[in-house]
């Protein structure tokens, strides 16, 4: 029923979603940490900026990314100048766009988790002579573990479901930018409903399985007890 193009789209989607989630967890953590601790007057500005991809329709976001990353866009000129070329129609470009698209889904759960911990455990750690970096890794991260899981799941799931952005900047290149959402859409548009149903079922089954595994792994109590 499914062609090799379908499987390759599934695999590519998995790669983009995993890589995006990983990058966002690494980059999102310091941002979320800063947001949860700062009294800076820039905080609302940054929070709003991070939340903007939630509001923008994905096709609009995708279109402006296409303009921005294009040869006449600011970002496109920059990437071209440093020898990367322009990003649309590349795997890198897709991961970059996915990171922007899924950013709030990773940063916000992390920020909430950090805020929920409060200053107390870190103050206690400080009295035990733990350096800020030490206490971040040995106190904050373990306590915020549920937040990391939620952030990871939401970031991954949101990227798998990404459509509008991929459609606008992908260019539908097999093995490079043709993700499963676009492939599925193309089947429907081409009236290949049987293939569309199969692919949708497979995507659903696969996503369900990933989520099931992740939720099984997080058997740790979701409510962290402290003081």
């Amino acid at each position: 029923m499914l062609t090799s193009a379908d499987y390759s789209a599934l695999w590519l989607t998995f790669k983009v979603a995993s890589l995006t989630t990983l990058i966002l967890l690494i980059l999102g953590t310091p941002v979320a940490w800063w947001l949860s601790n700062t009294q800076s007057r820039w905080k609302p500005l940054l929070s709003a900026l991070i939340a903007v991809p939630l509001v923008l329709p994905p096709t609009v976001l995708g279109f402006y990314l296409l303009v921005l990353m294009g040869p006449e866009g600011a970002l496109g000129r920059f990437t071209d100048a440093i020898g990367l070329g322009t990003l649309p129609f590349t795997f890198t470009g897709l991961v970059f766009a996915s990171c922007i698209y899924s950013l709030p889904f990773v940063v916000q759960p992390l920020q909430n988790a950090f805020e929920a911990i409060g200053p107390r455990p870190l103050e206690v750690a400080a009295t035990l002579r733990a350096s800020p970096i030490d206490s971040f890794f040995s106190v904050t991260i373990p306590l915020a573990k549920p937040g990391f899981f939620t952030a990871g799941i939401l970031g991954f799931a949101h990227t798998v479901g990404e459509f509008g952005v991929v459609l606008m900047i992908g260019g539908n290149i097999p093995d490079k930018t043709r993700l499963v959402s676009v492939q599925l859409y193309n089947h429907v548009e081409a009236l290949e409903y049987t293939q569309a149903h199969w692919l949708a079922a497979l995507l659903l089954g696969f996503s369900f399985l990933v989520l099931l595994v992740m939720y099984t792994v997080i058997k740790t109590p979701l409510r962290v007890q402290h003081v």
């Binding site: 279109f63 296409l66 303009v67 990353m69 294009g70 040869p71 006449e72 866009g73 322009t86 649309p88 129609f89 606008m168 260019g171």
Partner: peptide, 8 residues
Amino acid sequence: QFVRTGNA
């Protein structure tokens, strides 16, 4: 759009 934005 791809051509118009200069990406292609």
